[in-house]
């Protein structure tokens, strides 16, 4: 797997990544949850930077880089691919911050403009309707996670969005593994409930009505 810590943007020779067809790439991008990536970017930027740096730009640029590089790498699972994309995102955020600082000082590195994607034609990254859907989903996800009680929220956020392992979460939050697992399940249930209240649960039928115990849709 390419290591984004050592510059993912330049370690892949241009033209080396042409393995996935547009359809395959689209499914690969969808499988890592682009809306969730937006949530991660927004949380990493924080409110102060969100006004200066566009989270969607970061996502688009990261996906462009990922598309360029993904064919040269073998990913064991969508999770591994997503972890790689997350690290690219980190680099893009750093670049964006540097550019932002440089612009203030009157210079700065020019980042890839949306218009330049045309020739690369990265599927899954550019159609306005898809972007709008991701934006909307991201807003709902961010709101849903915020409405999970604080003691459970952090575990869910780190596990689902930032993709940390349970041991890492336990170390970071100073909890036992048992407690992390317990909070994860309870938090996940609440998170799903909030998603459904917002109407983006997977099961439209479950978003209304009483829960069915023992039935196929009951959790």
């Amino acid at each position: 797997m390419p290591d984004p810590e050592h510059n993912p943007d330049t370690s892949i020779p241009p033209g080396a990544s042409r393995g996935a067809s547009p359809g395959e790439w689209e499914r690969l991008v969808e499988s890592v949850g682009p809306a969730s990536l937006l949530v991660v970017i927004q949380s990493r930027l924080g409110p102060a930077l969100l006004g200066r740096i566009d989270a969607e730009d970061i996502l688009q640029e990261s996906l462009v880089r990922a598309w360029r590089g993904h064919a040269s790498a073998k990913f064991a699972s969508p999770r591994a691919f997503r972890a790689w994309v997350l690290r690219i995102i980190d680099h893009r955020i750093k670049d964006a911050l540097r550019s932002s600082g440089a612009i203030k000082r009157g210079g700065g590195r020019k980042h890839i403009a949306p218009g330049s994607w045309g020739s690369i034609a990265t599927p899954g990254s550019g159609t306005p309707s898809r972007l709008a859907r991701h934006r909307e989903q991201a807003a709902v996800m961010a709101d849903a996670i915020e409405r999970v009680p604080p003691d459970l929220r952090e575990v869910v956020r780190l596990r689902l969005f930032h993709q940390l392992g349970l041991e890492q979460i336990a170390t970071e939050l100073g909890l036992t593994m048992t407690e992390v697992r317990s909070r994860l399940r309870r938090g996940a249930e609440l998170y799903r409930r909030r998603l459904r209240e917002a109407g983006i649960g997977r099961s439209a039928r479950n978003s209304v009505g009483e829960p069915t115990i023992g039935g196929p849709d009951c959790v």
């Binding site: 499988s31 890592v32 969730s36 969005f161 996940a188 799903r192 998603l195 997977r202 009951c218 959790v219």
Partner: peptide
């Protein structure tokens, strides 16, 4: 085993990624 389907559905519903 009764809980298995429920847990899988919960996992599927909250996973931000999954099998395409």
């Amino acid at each position: 085993s009764d809980h298995a389907d429920r847990l899988l559905a919960l996992a599927r519903d909250v996973a931000v990624m999954g099998a395409p």
